[in-house]
Design a protein around this nucleic acid. Structure first.
Lengths: 230, 230
DNA sequence: ACCACTTGACTTGTATGGTAGTAGGCTAGT
DNA sequence: ACTAGCCTACTACCATACAAGTCAAGTGGT
C-alpha cells in the first residue's frame, strides 16, 4: 500500500536538516517569522511531517548565525534585530568585500565588466515597488564580484554572516533608495573598468555604509522588531 | 591502550555537543587526529560514554568548518589540508584584521599599546622549541587587537574560520621563524603607537602573509597531511 | 579462473522515548 | 482576599531504536 503523503515539500535527495534550516532562515529574513516569536521543535516537526531531530539541527545552525536564541528547557525564540550586531556584520562584510573589489580592479578583465554592466541594466528595469527582486539582483551583483576575484570561499563567509543585514534590508520602506544604490554600483564598476583600485575600494565601502544611514530610521519605525538597547 | 576511566571528562554544566566539538577540533588542529583518518560517531560516543547524537552535532559543525568531511552512509573523515583552502582562509582573515588594525591605529590609546608591548616581551621569553606556547601568545596578540577595536564579533568570525591556518602552523618545523614573527608584531605595534594607519595596515598584511612563504615547504615535507591538488 | 550475486557488518540519517528543568496556573491553607 | 507550594504542560537535551545506503568479502554457477 503506497503511503500517499500530502505533497512532501522536502526533497528526498538531500538530508532533511539542512533543508529545514534554509526554510526557516528564509522565513526569518523575510519577517514571516517575526522577531521575538517563539518557535518549537515539535511544532515545526509536525507541520513538516518529520521528526524533531532534523529541526533541532536546524535550530542549532540558526542560533550560531544569531537568528534564533535557544534557551535550554525553556524555548527557542526568533531574535530581535540588534542594531549593534547589524553593524558588526556590516564591518566584517565591508572588510572582506573591500579586498575583493581591490583585487578585481587590479586584474580587471573586460568580461566581468561587461557582465556587471549588464546586471546594472537589469537592476534599472526593476519596478520601484519590487524590493525583493532588487535585493536578489543586488545579491547577484556582489556575488559576481567575489566570483570574478576567484573568492568563492570568501563569499561563502559573507553569506553565512550577512543574514542580520538582510533582515534589515527587507524591512526598508523607502523605494527611492534603490536608485541611489544602483548609482553606487555604477561607480564601483566604473572604477573597476578604469583599473583604479583605490577608487573602487572607496566606492564599495561607501556603498556598504549606506545601510547605516537608514538603520536608525528603520529601528525607530519598527521598534517591535528591534531589541531595546539602541 | 584504552584511555581514561569511565569518570566523566565532560562538564555537566554545559551541553555535551559543543564540548565534543571543541575536543575534536583541538585534536584535529594538533594533528592528533591525522588528516585522512576515519572517525565514526559510534566510536567516539563510546569512548566518551555518551550517545551518538551529541557527537553527530559536533561532526556537523566540524564539517561546516571544513575540518571533517561527512559522507552519508559511508563515513566521516578528517579532511586533508588543502593549500587552496588555507589561502582562502588567510585572505579572509587578512581582510578583516586589516580593517581592525586600521581602526586601532586611528584611535590609538596608550593602554592598549602598553598591553601589546607587554605581550611582545612575553613572546620573547618563550623557549625556541615550545611552539605551542608561542602560538597561544600569538593568538592572544591578535585577539587583543580585535578587542581594542571593540570588534569582538569580527574576532569570532576569524576564530571560526582560522582553524585551517592553525593546522598548518602547528606543523611548522623551523623554530627560527618565531623571531621574525615577533619582529613583525613589534612593527605593527610601533605603527599603532605612532598612529600611522597605513603603516600599521601594511605591517599586519605582511605579517599574515608570512604563512604563504612556509606553506609550500610544509606541504612538501608532510605530503601525507595534504591533499593532492597542489 | 572468472564474474554476477548475496550477505552481513559497517556507516550516517531519521524517528521516538525518556529525563531534567522551567513557567505559570491552580489549589490548599491562612 | 491573599499567598505559598504543588501540579501540569511544555521545553530542549540526550539516549536509544530503526531505516537506508555502502562496501567488501564470500559464494555458487559458468
Amino acid at each position: 500500500m503506497q503511503n500517499i503523503k500530502p505533497q512532501r515539500v522536502l526533497s528526498a535527495a538531500e538530508a532533511v536538516g539542512p533543508q529545514v534550516y534554509r526554510i526557516l532562515r528564509e522565513q526569518i529574513i523575510q519577517a514571516e517569522l517575526t522577531p521575538g516569536e517563539r518557535i518549537s521543535e515539535a511544532e515545526i516537526a509536525k507541520s513538516l511531517s518529520i521528526s524533531r531531530q532534523p529541526v533541532r539541527e536546524a535550530f542549532i545552525k540558526l542560533s550560531e548565525e544569531g537568528l534564533v536564541q535557544v534557551l535550554p528547557q525553556r524555548g527557542t525564540y526568533v531574535t530581535r534585530i540588534s542594531t549593534a550586531s547589524v553593524m558588526d556584520v556590516r564591518f566584517v562584510r565591508e572588510a572582506i568585500e573591500a579586498d575583493i573589489v581591490r583585487q578585481v580592479a587590479g586584474e580587471h578583465t573586460a568580461g566581468t565588466v561587461r557582465e556587471l554592466r549588464d546586471q546594472i541594466a537589469r537592476q534599472k528595469q526593476v519596478p520601484q515597488d519590487d524590493r525583493a527582486a532588487f535585493l536578489r539582483l543586488d545579491e547577484l551583483f556582489h556575488h559576481t564580484l567575489a566570483a570574478a576575484a576567484g573568492r568563492a570561499y570568501a563569499w561563502s563567509v559573507i553569506e553565512s554572516v550577512k543574514a542580520q543585514m538582510d533582515r534589515v534590508r527587507f524591512l526598508s520602506v523607502d523605494d527611492i533608495q534603490i536608485g541611489r544604490l544602483i548609482d553606487q554600483h555604477e561607480r564601483i564598476v566604473d572604477a573597476i573598468a578604469a583599473g583604479d583600485v583605490g577608487k573602487a575600494e572607496t566606492a564599495l565601502r561607501t556603498h556598504l555604509r549606506e545601510i547605516l544611514k537608514s538603520l536608525p530610521e528603520i529601528a525607530r519605525a519598527r521598534t517591535e522588531f528591534f531589541d531595546g538597547v539602541a
